[in-house]
Design a protein around this nucleic acid. Sequence first.
DNA 1: TCTGGGGTCCTAGGACCC
DNA 2: TCTGGGGTCCTAGGACCC
Length: 423
Amino acid sequence: MKFGLVDCNNFYVSCERLFNPSLNGKAVVVLSNNDGCVVARSNEAKSLGIQMGTPAFQIQELINRHEVIVFSSNYTLYADLSNRVMTLLAGFVEEQEVYSIDEAFLSFAGFNNYNLYDYGTKIVRAVTKGTGIPVSLGIADTKTLAKVASKFAKKYPAYNGVCIIDTEEKREKALRLFPVEDVWGIGRKHTARLKSIGVKTAYDFTQLPLSWIKRHMSVTGERTYKELLGESCIDIETNPPSKKQICTSRSFGEMISDRDILAEAVSSFADSCARKLRAQKTYAVCLMVFIHTNYFRKDLPQYSRNMIIRLPVPTSDTREIIHHALIALDTIFCPGFQYKKAGVIILEITNKEGIQMNLFEQPVSDKSSKLMQAIDRINGKHGKKIRLAVQGSPDHSQWHLKQEMLSPQYTTNIKDILRIKCD
DNA sequence: TCTGGGGTCCTAGGACCC
DNA sequence: TCTGGGGTCCTAGGACCC
């Protein structure tokens, strides 16, 4: 049985181009939150030598000289287009794993009598035509090899977007051409160690003795090793298990000293965590709030603290979670520092069955869950209109992200949809 | 001036138990 | 001189992913 990996090409840039065709053929990059680092590049931007993850200010000169077009991240737009891609893909296979916003694994179990190259070509054409987002497809005996194949499909136009590794010869040839640092599961640390012993390609890696892998890279490294050799060790996860941890945190557009503004941010993060809990029908058992100053500013006094609170009763009620998050904040807040980042993390999560009745507190009340359902319904339909007063106004808050080059919410905001039509 | 956010899994070592 | 041993659970930290 074979696995497929579908990867959207330069996904965020492709999303921006979809609604602004004048960007085609030009160097375009998309920045992370707060316009910090480069997280997506068009091919033209890659050719200029712009690396993934580079801080934007470090390449300002390059951007100016080559008139690179820069966007802030527009996650609402990207998530919407991602859903369209995933929905189309689901029509082609029985089993699909949405692996990230721009990648999905497909299972080709039961496709023994198919010409997978033809079928793969059909998938790639349908998605590209149906959504406007170009994609590449890699097919092989394991997930790790499918990832390798997809990189070849993307890199060499002759493949027409589909690359299949289905013989020993092709597997070995592909691995000899594949840099070890690009292998799925081998990160920076292991790359450094591997390079130090002369391992450059994925093929070199597969020639190491298994004992070396076990000693230095644990069972995850062993899985990667076997998968590259063609033995499938990582299965498709069709319905991903619910999250074991939920986190919302942000760096601020500008540093914050004021407790009340920090409280607005922390309340909003807590609200976001509560929403995510309800979306997977779970309850928070225990949460953490953290705040810290700007680590990069060696010239300023530094402060960093967190606090963990066990909730009296597991809950997904926004009001409860905000209440306890603010208690934590007031315990750790120390005046006189300039804070750069804060966050709320739900560390322990339970489902309805897991809620232990507490002798002295009421368990999740019907009233609370009905209210939350109503709020989620309204916010789902009309954008996040309902919030607690302590979260402050969404329009003029000091803690919001810096997004100086944001594109319009083309697909989700009616005003922007009308604007496209008028243009 | 300016350096992302949200996750997962694995391991080593300490605490604790009988 | 001698100062158990084995099992389990928890946590912090490290590695990885997109």
